[in-house]
Every structure is written in structure tokens, then in C-alpha cells.
Design a protein around this nucleic acid. Structure first.
Lengths: 228, 228
DNA sequence: GCCGCGTTTTACCCGCTAGTATATTTTTGG
DNA sequence: CCAAAAATATACTAGCGGGTAAAACGCGGC
């Protein structure tokens, strides 16, 4: 209804730049792409909050536009439609988690950390991402079925890749004898379950209880693989 | 569109009678209430399947009526509205699980079973119910927010009661020294998480893999409390 | 065979929302 | 300071789905 869609701060990317955009005044060359990326992420930010509290179907594009102090056609210049916005939201959690694993595995290989420490660090980091992006993840879990077929499959593949990599970490731990599990791939799925359950334990607004949930979840995961 | 809403078999109540209705030809007295209950449970059965595959908002009452070979106003004679149908579906999983705990605790007290066996049996039984009622539970997890405030709270209270009772079982096990956990109530919540995650591991139609998922889930739960 | 009552259907309304064609404002660069 | 073009808003449509009033059906009893 009113004006000025860009009244607030950036979409607070947790760490890495997901969009491969040099946002802001990098070299002076091309400021536009960064602005576009900023607007897109602001839309996603507000959309995830809206979908989180109202549900995807109940939430309307007009509501979303109002929250951004913009209008509906504005949204259509940055996303193909409602489904595209949902798709982008749903993809964030996994993408960020995979990026975190990349980062951790790289630095872990450098310093030659023990497999158990790699696993522990990974779990803690991913648990942290889940708390930070809780709204995105809840929306994904709930609204999965509203995704278009192709989007749903793409995201599912990413999730499988995540499970696979956790499974490999578990196997590495088994090889050096620090833990014992019946079947690493299976166990990685149950670990995924515990991590997902964090979305039930933690509600945004509960302030610092987030870190407590992270601790509990990591501990539970480790216990599942026979550590602790 | 067509006729004959009652073409199939009863709603296959898994074990106990949840509605306290003497369905069928009990004494010859009053057949009507049983018929009404039957129709209600047929509606719920079909509705849960529909909501499961389409989602609550996407699914329409016309679709549901068609599946039952009936019409929309027919539904309104048995339920106040769409939300009432959802509410009834969402309540089933917890209610049945609590009933199972009642049954198990009663018979367990009779034969004086060990606390660990009580816990083990309870987990296995509830896991079985989850597989049997998977569609009801998935719908509940997904569509919770579409419940009216009162319904949502009532069901949540039932879930808390469930967690509480699992927590008490864990404490009993701790008292006799068979397991050790940091905090029983907290642990019961994570057990709830593992059990809920079964809905992700098992898709209806996967035939006998259901029992395998039950075994895995129970094993994971036991490992969580330090049993192997 | 026909009456009356409970059940089920036909036919309808109302409100709402994704998406769009067109107008208007803002920015760019000359 | 002014045109061209990019960004954003206004105003509209089309279709759908929840809910309902009133007609039609069917099944006991007489």
C-alpha cells in the first residue's frame, strides 16, 4: 500500500554468500546485481516469516507485499510466482548446511582432525544453522508438497547428499574404531530426524534457549552413534 | 457425483474402540448410532488419505465427497466443517497411543514386568501405531497450524501427557539402575522426535518395510537412553 | 399405496486470491 | 534539464472453494 520497500537491513546471510554476488560497492563495477540480490533476499526473509506463521496457502501475496511496504506486481518482478518464492525458501536450509560441511571438511583436512571431531563439529554447526534458519526449515517440512515436482526433487537430492556425507563421516569414525553402529547410512537418516526435531523444540522468540537445544541435539546425535 | 457412500469395509479401528460406540449389532437395541459412527470414520479415513496426498488447503470438500461417492452437504451432516474434520484426524494418533500405553501399563503391572521391558514394549507398540496411522500423523504434523486454537491446545495437551508418561517410564528404569540419562523429561521429547521421524522413513505402499522401520526406530530410541 | 420424517442432493452465493494489462513514477545518462 | 528506459503501482479479471437454503429422495408404519 505505501512506499519504500528497502527500509531495513540486509537479509543477514549467516556466513557465506549463497548467491555468488559481490553485494555492495566492491570495485565500483555493477551495483545493480547486488541490489537485486538484496531485494530477493528481503522478500524471502519476509515470506518465510509469513509462511511460518500463517501457512503457505493461507498467506497471500498481498500480505507479503504489505509487509514489505510494496505491492504484488513488485514481487512478480523478482520471482516467477508464489511457488517460486516457496521453492527458494525451501532450498535454503539444505544448501547452507551443505556449504557448512564443505567448509568444515576443508579446514578439518588441513589440520588433520580426528574423524570424531569432524563429526562433532559438523553436527554442532548444522544444528546452529537449523536454529538460525528455523522458519525456513519449518516451512520446508510443512509445505514440501506444495513445491512443483522438479523443485521438490532437486531439494530432495540435496538432502540425500547431506545424509550421504554424514554417513561417510560415521564410516570414517567406525574405521578408526571410535564408534560402532549397525549401518552408517541408516544411522545418518535417524540423525537427520533428531536434527529436524529441533524445529519442534525451539520456537523463535525463546531467545537464548536456542543454544541449549543445539547442545541437546548434538548430544542426542552422538549418543545415537554410541559416543558419550 | 454418484451414489452409495457406504460401499467399502469399516474404518478398521486398529484395536480399541476410540469412540465408545457399540458399533454393529450388539444387542439389537439402537443400530443408528453405530451407523453414524461408521460413516464418520469412513469420512475421516478418506479425508486423511486426501489431505495426506494433496495437503489440507489444496484438498477440497468436493474432492472428498467424490471419493466417498457422496456430495458436499452430506459431509456437513457429520462434521461442522472442514476444520472439524481436520481436528478429528489430528487427534487420532495421540489418542490411540495413549490408549496403548494404558493397556500396556495395566497388563504390565499384573505380571510385574521389569521397567525396561515396559519401556521397550511401549515404544514398539507406539511405533506400530505410527506406521498403521501414518497418514493421520503426517497430516497432523503438517497441518497443525490450520487447527482452531482450542483443538490445537487440546491435542497438544494429549501429546504432553504422552511425553510425560514416557518420561516416567524412563525414570523408573533409572531408579532400578538399568539405564542412565541426564534428564528424563528432556529425553522423552527426543524420543518423540525419533518416533515422529518414522513418518519420513516410511511411505505407505512400501508394504512390509514398515516393520523394519519400527525395529530401527525402537532400537534408536533405546540407544538414546543408553540401552543397546 | 401413501404419509411423514430423517437423510441426501441440487443449485446457488459470496468472498477471496493468483495473476496481468496498463498507467505512473523514478532513475539514468546525455 | 530533458527524454528514454527501468522500476513500481493501480485497477482489474477469472476462477475457485467453503458454506447453505430448499428441493428430492427413501424408508418405515398404517
Amino acid at each position: 500500500m505505501t512506499r519504500n520497500p528497502t527500509q531495513a537491513l540486509p537479509a543477514a546471510p549467516r556466513r557465506s554468500a549463497r548467491h555468488a554476488d559481490g553485494a555492495g560497492q566492491t570495485t565500483g563495477r555493477e551495483i545493480r546485481p547486488g541490489v537485486v540480490a538484496f531485494k530477493r533476499s528481503r522478500i524471502l526473509e519476509e515470506a518465510s516469516a509469513l509462511f511460518y506463521e500463517k501457512g503457505y496457502e493461507t498467506a497471500t501475496l498481498d500480505m507479503l507485499a504489505d509487509r514489505l511496504s510494496a505491492t504484488k506486481p513488485f514481487l512478480y518482478t523478482y520471482f516467477k510466482g508464489k511457488a517460486a518464492i516457496l521453492s527458494a525458501i525451501c532450498e535454503m536450509g539444505v544448501t547452507e548446511s551443505l556449504a557448512a560441511l564443505d567448509r568444515i571438511e576443508a579446514s578439518s583436512a588441513e589440520i588433520g582432525a580426528a574423524p570424531v571431531d569432524l563429526l562433532r563439529t559438523s553436527l554442532r554447526e548444522v544444528a546452529g544453522i537449523i536454529i538460525d534458519r528455523i522458519e525456513y526449515l519449518v516451512v520446508y517440512q510443512r509445505e514440501m508438497m506444495n513445491l512443483e515436482r522438479g523443485d521438490a526433487q532437486r531439494i530432495l537430492r540435496l538432502r540425500h547428499e547431506f545424509d550421504l556425507r554424514i554417513g561417510r563421516m560415521i564410516e570414517a569414525c567406525m574405521r578408526d574404531g571410535s564408534i560402532t553402529v549397525a549401518d552408517a547410512p541408516t544411522m545418518s537418516v535417524w540423525i537427520g530426524g533428531l536434527l529436524s526435531w529441533m524445529t519442534y523444540c525451539y520456537r523463535p522468540g525463546s531467545a537464548r534457549s536456542g543454544e541449549a537445544v543445539v547442545e541437546q541435539a548434538v548430544k542426542a546425535c552422538l549418543r545415537l552413534v554410541g559416543l558419550d
